[in-house]
Amino acid sequence: MSQDTSPFTRRLATNARTVEGLLERLLGQTTEADEIARPANLLAAMRHGVLNGGKRLRPFLVIECADLLGGNRDAALRVGAALECVHCYSLVHDDLPAMDDDDMRRGQPTVHRAFDEATAILAGDSLLTFAFDIIAAPETALSDAQKVELILALGRAAGHGGMAGGQALDLAAEKSPPDEAGIVTLQAMKTGALIRFACEAGAIVAGAAKEDRARLRAFGEKIGLAFQLADDLLDLTADAETMGKATGKDAARGKGTLVALNGQTWAEDRLEQLVAEAEALLAPYGVRSAILVEAARFIANRRS
């Protein structure tokens, strides 16, 4: 099978390497001002949970949305790295036996398997906290007002009213499957909130007008829905080797998904509709938004 070498794929890969390089440096052994020490085992667990490949899609969206509106690329990169720390913390905790109980993530042992459960919990806690450190740090070349906006938006997207709350709903769904509206709410929180933040964060980094910020936020909401819908399809159709993690677990646990409720054909049609709606939101930016249009299509059509 030929490797995809489209301009979008190359740009996604390039950004991923850049983000990975920054995360490698940020999670180094050298302590920052006011840090007392970085315990070696904890740092190793944090690095295991973060420096393990991945598409780095969320940082990519921060960077490209900021670039669309003329934002500082270095600042966007740091905000993207912070967001990736939040995303990776959520994966470390989601994989725990008390949550989704997964042994593999991105083709390697999950953090609690490679280390132990207590260390995995602390690694997740540390990554979440470190995300806000990265945004607030003087090295992030943004105004104090922009940093406050980013911290507030990320806190709302990641906390009990967003991603963490979505995980709580997901756990509850194992005992009492939600209806279609409940599934949409769950997915908008657990998966969609951080993707929405990624796009809105790009606008905040760029100091964009309210209309642009609202437009990119709405774009993020559309592609967040598409991401989860594509994920549900992959859980149904892909194999564990391709995904780098267990598949078919939602069905095994009796969790309801939009795919299970409405069928594969409906899901594929809905994905096309979401991509069209996302593209329409970007239409005012013309050719400058081409890379984000490709990102929407990639999210809907991904195979892993």
Results as ranks from 00 to 15, higher is better:
Thr5Pro: 00
Thr5Tyr: 06
Pro7Tyr: 05
Thr9Glu: 11
Thr9Lys: 13
Arg11Ser: 13
Leu12Thr: 02
Thr14Ser: 11
Asn15Lys: 01
Asn15Thr: 15
Asn15Val: 10
Ala16Tyr: 02
Gly21Arg: 04
Leu23His: 05
Leu23Ser: 12
Arg25Met: 09
Leu27His: 11
Gly28Trp: 03
Thr30Val: 07
Thr30Lys: 10
Thr31Pro: 13
Asp34Cys: 12
Ala37Trp: 14
Leu43Gly: 14
His48Glu: 14
His48Lys: 07
His48Ser: 10
Leu51Arg: 15
Lys55Ala: 10
Arg58Gly: 12
Pro59Lys: 13
Pro59Leu: 13
Phe60Pro: 08
Val62Gln: 00
Val62Glu: 01
Val62Tyr: 01
Ile63Cys: 15
Glu64Pro: 14
Asp67Cys: 12
Gly71Leu: 07
Gly71Met: 07
Asn72Arg: 15
Gly80Trp: 04
Ala82Cys: 06
Cys85Ala: 14
Cys88Gly: 06
Cys88Gln: 05
Tyr89Lys: 12
Tyr89Gln: 14
Leu91Met: 12
His93Val: 10
Asp95Tyr: 01
Asp95Phe: 08
Pro97Tyr: 13
Asp102Ile: 01
Met104Arg: 07
Arg106Ala: 12
Gln108Leu: 15
Gln108Glu: 15
Arg113Ala: 12
Ala120Leu: 04
Asp125Gly: 12
Leu127Gly: 05
Leu127His: 10
Leu128Tyr: 11
Leu128Gln: 13
Phe132Thr: 03
Ile134Val: 15
Ile135Lys: 01
Ala136Asp: 00
Ala136Lys: 00
Ser143Glu: 01
Lys147His: 00
Leu152Ser: 10
Ala153Thr: 09
Ala153Cys: 07
Leu154Asn: 02
Gly155Ser: 06
Gly159Trp: 05
Gly159Thr: 07
Met163Ala: 04
Gly165Lys: 09
Gly166Glu: 04
Ala168Val: 14
Ala172Ser: 06
Ser176Gln: 14
Ser176Gly: 08
Pro177Thr: 04
Asp179Leu: 12
Asp179Ser: 11
Glu180Thr: 02
Leu186Ser: 02
Met189Pro: 03
Gly192Cys: 03
Ala193His: 05
Arg196Glu: 08
Phe197Trp: 01
Glu200Trp: 05
Ala201Thr: 02
Ala201Val: 03
Ile204Ala: 02
Ile204Glu: 00
Gly207His: 03
Gly207Gln: 05
Lys210Arg: 15
Lys210Glu: 15
Arg215Met: 05
Arg217Ile: 00
Arg217His: 07
Ala218Gly: 00
Phe219Gln: 00
Phe219His: 02
Lys222Val: 00
Ile223Trp: 03
Gly224Asp: 07
Leu225Asp: 01
Gln228Ser: 12
Leu229Ala: 08
Leu229Lys: 07
Asp232Ile: 03
Leu233Asn: 03
Leu234Tyr: 12
Asp235Cys: 08
Leu236Cys: 14
Thr237Ile: 10
Ala240Asn: 03
Ala240Met: 06
Thr242Gln: 11
Thr242Lys: 08
Lys245Ser: 10
Lys245Ile: 14
Thr247Leu: 09
Lys249Phe: 10
Lys255His: 04
Gly256Thr: 11
Leu258Ser: 08
Ala260Gly: 11
Asn262Pro: 03
Gln264Leu: 09
Gln264Arg: 11
Glu268Gly: 01
Arg270Leu: 02
Glu272Tyr: 10
Ala276Trp: 08
Glu279Met: 07
Glu279Phe: 12
Leu282Cys: 01
Pro284Cys: 10
Tyr285Met: 10
Tyr285Ala: 14
Gly286Asn: 14
Val287Asn: 15
Arg288Ala: 15
Val293His: 08
Arg297Lys: 13
Phe298Lys: 02
Phe298Met: 04
Asn301Gln: 12
Arg302Cys: 06
